[in-house]
């Protein structure tokens, strides 16, 4: 009698273990399989290449995690990345230099983030709809002032920033990782982070105990805006030109990686490191292995879809288990 109870409990623990860490297990399996498929996969250069690809999404996903943890959504990030760099290009055509352009990129990011924040906090609009509207609007502005997003060569400093390396590692990768770790610390160690979780769990209770809800939400949206602008900046650096494809469909990618990494869309749960980080790396890993093996690129969206599907279902099953 006693024995059976123990075995049952042990079994349950095992399932629970798989469910809790299902996403990380999936990632590890993917990693090993990729290593077996292609001998080039586990080389230092290639791993660095994956990180290099991931730098764009890493930072914006980190910002997005904050927004989602407070129980809101920011669908405007992709367009914002495009729009901020478009305005910088517009300024460049009117004589601005590199440093001005960088300032403009981030200023636009913060400003648009603030507008999003006002719409969501003070006007109390549904965050998804309001930012969807902003998404259309920003894309319109960006394509309008750059003649439909025609390719423009940027000052050489952008390429130089991308080439700049410390100890053989591109500085952009280092910066992204530092930002990631910094954000994780803010989320876990500061009062601000705790407020984010509290608001996400229950805005009503947060209001009742007197937390500065509006300020926190505003800050979160501005942060997300700046992170989105960073994407625009990094993409410009990487290729050295501006084109209308910057930030294309990034908004759904952000939500996807956050949710894969265990952040709940209902708010109040999630982390940036390792959750969101692994989510982003997983996306680029699929991309990378398909390019390494020379697979048809048309398989890519489907393969990506399958992995995301699996990851999200594992996450959902975990919640289902917890509830019952």
């Amino acid at each position: 009698m006693n024995d059976t109870t123990i075995t049952v409990r042990r079994k349950f623990d095992l399932t629970n273990f798989f469910l809790s860490y299902g996403f990380y297990i999936l990632f590890a399996v993917m990693f090993v399989v990729c290593g077996i498929i292609s001998p080039f996969f586990l080389t230092k250069d290639n791993l660095m290449q994956i990180m290099w690809g991931a730098t764009t999404l890493l930072v914006v996903a980190a910002g997005g995690t904050f927004v989602i943890i407070t129980g809101n959504m920011d669908m405007s990030v992709g367009s914002l990345a495009l729009c901020s760099s478009a305005i910088a290009v517009y300024a460049m055509n009117h004589g601005a230099e590199f440093s001005h352009m960088v300032i403009i990129i981030f200023a636009v990011g913060a400003a648009v983030g603030a507008v999003n924040g006002i719409l969501v906090t003070y006007c109390k609009l549904n965050s998804m709809l309001a930012t969807l509207g902003m998404m259309t609007l920003l894309r319109g502005i960006a394509l309008n002032i750059t003649n439909g997003g025609a390719q423009t060569t940027l000052p050489d400093e952008f390429r130089m920033a991308a080439d700049f390396k410390i100890g053989g590692i591109a500085v952009l990768i280092i910066v992204s990782l530092l930002i990631l770790i910094l954000f994780q610390c803010i989320l876990r160690k500061t009062r601000f982070g705790a407020y984010c979780y509290a608001i996400g769990c229950s805005e009503e209770s947060a209001k009742r105990i007197g937390l500065p809800i509006r300020k926190v939400k505003m800050a979160v949206y501005i942060l997300s805006g700046i992170c989105a602008a960073f994407v625009g900046f990094v993409t410009c650096c990487k290729v050295g030109t501006y084109s209308g494809t910057i930030g294309n469909e990034m908004e759904f990618d952000v939500v996807t990686v956050c949710v894969m990494g265990g952040t709940s869309l209902l708010g109040g749960r999630g982390n940036i490191f390792p959750g969101t980080f692994i989510g982003v790396v997983l996306l680029y890993l699929i991309n990378n292995i398909l390019a390494l093996t020379g697979a048809s690129p048309y398989i890519y969206p489907f393969a990506k879809g399958l992995v995301i599907f699996a990851a999200m279902y594992v996450d959902a099953l975990k919640n289902y288990r917890r509830r019952t």
């Binding site: 759904f252 939500v255 996807t256 949710v259 869309l265 209902l266 048809s296 048309y298 398989i299 890519y300 969206p301 489907f302 393969a303 990506k304 879809g305 399958l306 995301i308 599907f309 999200m312 279902y313 959902a316 099953l317 919640n319 289902y320 509830r323």
Partner: peptide, 27 residues
């Protein structure tokens, strides 16, 4: 049945459905 959040479910269905259409047509 599984009581998952509609946004996430349909988002992943969207990615799969899109990929499916691209894959079988090669664009």
């Amino acid at each position: 049945k599984a009581r998952m959040i509609p946004f996430i479910v349909t988002l992943s269905t969207q990615i799969i459905a899109n990929g499916f259409a691209v894959m079988i047509t090669n664009s």
